[in-house]
Computed example of a mutant assay.
Amino acid sequence: MKLGQELNATYIAYGQKGTEKKKRQATQDSFAKTAGVGVMAQRAVAKASKQYKNEAWDLVDAEKEGSINVEELDEAELPAEMQKMTPKERKQHIEKMAKEREELQKKINKLNEERRKYVAEQRKNSPDNTLDAAIIQAVQEQAQKKKYAFE
């Protein structure tokens, strides 16, 4: 959970859509948090993936994708904390957030891999005591009653 929140801090909303989209991101995180730790962890993993891109509202992704040049953006498009910065400082700030994001994504992905290995090991130790096993067993029992066979 903590890493997911730290990851959110690396997003720099810009433009009219930016603030709204960043709020939506936070709202979705809140929903995930109320759904449970596992859901929140999976959300953090999703945001740490290469597929999670937000160049339409995030300066870090937009700069990385080459869809904007921060030095050419109108000051009003920038978040308040960046409006006072020089173009060079803006670029440095975006680079700093990009590096932080990359490090957090690596940590999240490493922890996820450790979690996956742990869960797989636990399943080996108790394969019949999982939801998957219970569902498979129920389907097989129902299928046998209807004269279906599994190969």
Rank of each mutant, 00 (worst) to 15 (best):
M1C: 07
M1E: 10
M1P: 08
K2G: 05
L3W: 08
G4D: 01
Q5D: 12
Q5T: 13
E6H: 07
N8T: 07
Y11L: 07
Y11K: 09
I12R: 05
A13T: 04
Y14R: 02
G15D: 01
K17E: 13
E20C: 01
K21C: 11
K23H: 06
R24D: 15
R24H: 14
R24C: 06
Q25H: 11
A26N: 12
A26P: 01
Q28L: 14
Q28G: 07
Q28C: 03
D29Q: 15
S30C: 10
S30E: 15
F31N: 10
A32M: 01
A35I: 00
A35T: 00
G36V: 03
V37C: 06
V37M: 10
G38C: 05
V39A: 11
M40F: 05
M40Q: 13
A41V: 12
A41I: 12
A41Q: 14
Q42E: 14
R43A: 13
A46I: 07
A46P: 00
K50R: 13
Q51S: 15
Y52I: 00
Y52E: 11
Y52V: 01
K53F: 03
W57L: 02
L59D: 06
D61L: 04
A62H: 04
K64S: 11
S67E: 03
I68L: 10
N69Q: 13
N69C: 09
V70G: 06
V70D: 06
V70E: 10
E71C: 08
E72D: 14
E72K: 15
D74A: 14
D74C: 05
L78H: 03
L78E: 02
P79K: 01
A80P: 06
A80N: 06
E81C: 06
M82Y: 00
M82S: 04
M82H: 02
K88F: 09
K88A: 15
K88G: 03
E89M: 05
E89I: 01
K91Q: 12
H93C: 07
H93Y: 15
I94V: 15
E95S: 13
K96L: 12
A98W: 00
E100A: 08
R101V: 00
R101C: 00
E103W: 04
L104W: 01
K107M: 08
I108S: 03
N109P: 00
L111F: 06
N112S: 03
N112M: 01
E113R: 09
E114F: 06
E114W: 02
E114T: 05
E114V: 05
R115V: 01
R116P: 00
K117P: 03
Y118P: 00
V119F: 06
V119N: 04
E121Y: 08
Q122V: 01
Q122H: 03
R123E: 13
R123H: 09
K124C: 02
K124W: 04
S126W: 06
P127N: 03
D128Q: 09
N129S: 11
T130S: 07
L131C: 05
L131A: 14
L131S: 11
D132M: 09
D132W: 08
A133W: 07
I135S: 00
I136H: 08
I136C: 05
Q137V: 02
A138V: 04
V139F: 10
V139K: 07
Q140L: 09
E141A: 14
Q142N: 12
Q142L: 14
Q142H: 11
A143N: 05
A143W: 03
A143P: 04
Q144R: 15
Q144A: 15
K145C: 00
K145N: 10
K146Y: 10
K147L: 11
A149H: 14
E151R: 12
E151D: 13
